[in-house]
Write a protein that binds this DNA or RNA. Structure first.
Lengths: 342, 342
DNA sequence: ACCAAGATTGCATACGTATGAAAGGTACGA
DNA sequence: TCGTACCTTTCATACGTATGCAATCTTGGT
């Protein structure tokens, strides 16, 4: 419990220079002579001094903290995001402060959390799988704190957002299933309020419509494993079942596949083709081997950070909406060719 | 970009009181009269004032930030930890600053990261799946920053640690497999430097030894999916293969099961029983249905926080080592009864 | 040797808050 | 009425750093 707080003053005293010199030594781009640099380096080393980021940020107005709001890490898309985002920010001298928003009380909860985030004087906010009231968005804006919606967009045009092209992804999946000769299409939806849900479904329907087809069955899984199981039971419990199903994300697709195989005794893809969205790691595990749309997490993270930094460094005020391509990854959960159908 | 910074001074001016009064209003347990309280409440509300945590922590020495070092979120045990830990800390007014340590350069990396953590004046550090040099541990100690090792222990007795009883868990698994009549035991190890790896293996061997048995095959998977696949190929590639295998954690067990089933055409549990450790969510998904030891994340998180808070609030200096029971969860990856064996 | 321009340094102050000490206010009993 | 004790409030200062400004030192050209 020895309170061995070392300040720039201690270093200055030991090195025989002023406190400002020490401060300058630790501020890249400041002018310090070789000689004093060396004295300070030695003294700082000896005392084990490191600048206090909090004190620094009090005066610079920059905390080098990015607030990340995330709702549920059960969907293994998000752990990847947290890891990549933290890692890349870390390399740039920033760090991530995590806020978990119970998906329960949706946006009200996010608003409260965002208040807490602002208390930490963060330099930016990343909202993953969570939306926020536009009133609060305005407030962040007023504080000069940039916000980036990650894997989510919102009507408010003043908010930056980085997403995959969910609509195009849905369309690609429809086209794939059509090309394989499927006829009866099921869709298992995520949480209805989510833009990913809306866009993926819209794209899928669009793709079907282009071939004169439409949805045969629809059910809601709310992005949750258990609810997706229940949805699958409803959709496939009777005999007039779809012969192909698009599940709004991989996480739910696993639940659907498990029900089809282990409860209903159906074969994938012989009896039903299943496609998902995200390409989380288990999708390529042989147990699932799921055909899906890959969201390029690295690219999404890179764009997110680019957006943040542009706002932080250049005070770039205007919203930036980036939509990245998702690539279709065909695996074993869809049948091989149209010939063997029905 | 309007820089609408509202300070306690602004509130004070509007409310017609002193800045200290405002500060006291926002400090629980301070004495403020009903009348001024009300004036401040109104003024603060009107201006949208919230105390600046960073400025506050500069003077109180408490940042209400907990640093979390985590190596890899691919193992789905850790996302659960991050989520629970953040959530519970959040309820107590603390927040989690995330640091990802590349598992690559192990402890050297952690040391550097810990330096960065200290720069943020965190109130405590949780080290999950990462070890740290005792030199640096001493330094944190000197700074009065408590450290808790999560799911990891270390020889240094001055470090607090929260773990499951990995040894007992390993033993339970050995006893289960023995009771099912297995004879040839395989073990797929995690990263050799990890205490969980050592303890789980030790317990397993201990359990086997108690029945006069020993290991038939051993291979290393380093806690990684791909390496575990390779290990499984080596171990089960030839005909004289084990009839049961303990994989050091669930994450690797999935890889092993996938190889056994989809590359080698073996049936689980008819040909081989597989057991893991952790009970991450996919373990109970029907595709794996894995027999494993459940680590009680909630309890571990609760103990971690208790340990931290004891140190932070009471300045409790001494290390606290908590070991929690893990419960055996028998599922379908192990054969049902000894009768049908061999 | 001298001067100007540039580089380096120190001084003083500011960032937004908490808090000990002192001053002011209130209530109550004698 | 006065004095005491207690509750509120304000004043002043401190936390650890960054930075404008003025002062000082270097450097190089003449």
């Amino acid at each position: 419990m020895a309170n061995e707080k070392v300040t720039s003053n201690d270093v200055a005293r030991l090195a025989g220079v002023s406190q400002s010199a020490v401060s300058r030594y630790f501020t890249p781009g400041s002018s310090v002579s070789k000689k004093t640099s060396e004295k300070i380096r030695v003294a700082a080393e000896q005392l084990g001094y490191r600048p206090n980021i909090l004190a620094r940020s009090l005066i610079t107005g920059r905390s080098r903290i990015i607030g990340l709001v995330v709702a549920y890490l059960e969907n293994y898309f998000y752990p990847e995001v947290v890891e990549r985002l933290s890692k890349v920010l870390q390399e740039q001298g920033y760090h991530v402060l995590v806020f978990i928003s119970s998906p329960a009380s949706a946006s009200e909860n996010v608003d409260q959390i965002t208040q807490e985030i602002l208390d930490y004087q963060v330099d930016g906010i990343v909202l993953a799988s969570a939306s926020m009231s536009s009133e609060l968005a305005a407030r962040c804006h007023a504080h000069g704190v940039p916000i980036v919606l990650f894997n989510r967009s919102q009507d408010d045009e003043r908010l930056s957002a980085v997403t995959s092209d969910n609509r195009a992804g849905g369309r690609k999946l429809a086209e794939l299933l059509l090309s394989l000769g499927h006829e009866k299409f099921g869709y298992i939806a995520g949480f209805e309020g989510a833009s990913t849900q809306r866009d993926r479904e819209a794209g899928f329907l669009e793709g079907l419509a282009a071939a004169g087809k439409s949805l045969y069955r629809r059910s809601v899984g709310n992005f949750r494993y258990e609810e997706a199981q229940a949805a699958a039971r409803r959709m496939f419990g009777s005999d007039d079942r779809p012969d192909a199903v698009f599940v709004c994300n991989d996480h739910m697709a696993f639940a659907v596949m498990d029900v089809l195989r282990f409860e209903l005794g159906l074969e994938i893809p012989q009896d039903v083709s299943v496609v998902g969205f995200d390409d989380v790691p288990p999708a390529r595990w042989p147990a699932y081997n799921l055909t899906t749309i890959r969201q390029d997490v690295d690219a999404m993270v890179a764009e997110t950070i680019r957006t943040l930094m542009r706002a932080i460094d250049n005070g770039d005020d205007q919203a930036r909406r980036v939509t990245l391509d998702g690539t279709l990854v065909v695996r074993g959960s869809t049948r091989k060719c149209p010939a063997t159908s029905n």
